[in-house]
Amino acid sequence: MIVEEYFRVFLLLILSILFPLLPLSGSYLFSKINYRPFNSNDVKSAIYECGVESEDITWRQFNAKYFLYALGFVIFDVEVIFLFPWAVIHSEQSYDIFLKVAIFVGVLAFGLLYAWKWRALEWQ
């Protein structure tokens, strides 16, 4: 019974949200008995930049290289999700199943080689 099994995940999910809230509430209690200091000022609430005042907004345009890596990740993730059902039944099958998967992975390996050849994998 799949739904029943995954109810346990839900139970653990609730407990895992409560778990970090326990020390945080302890921290909150310390502030209630005036033991934890709380006197923020402009210098304290400024962002930490090794003592230098921060210039410019934080959000700047990042390199498109990051996007390429993320896209490569998505592509290989989808590939792996396709391959897991094959992997489960692979040991029960005959030789011809191997050819089907070889085509699938071969096409993507070609893509990886293509990216390599075009120096898209160089991190700079």
């Binding site: 020390p23 921290s27 934890r36 200091p37 709380f38 923020s40 402009d42 609430s45």
Partner: peptide, 16 residues
């Protein structure tokens, strides 16, 4: 350590 961390002042950046 846990008790020490709990009683430390929590700073939140103004721009956060």
């Amino acid at each position: 350590d846990a008790i020490k961390l709990m009683q430390k002042e929590v700073l939140v950046p103004a721009v956060a």
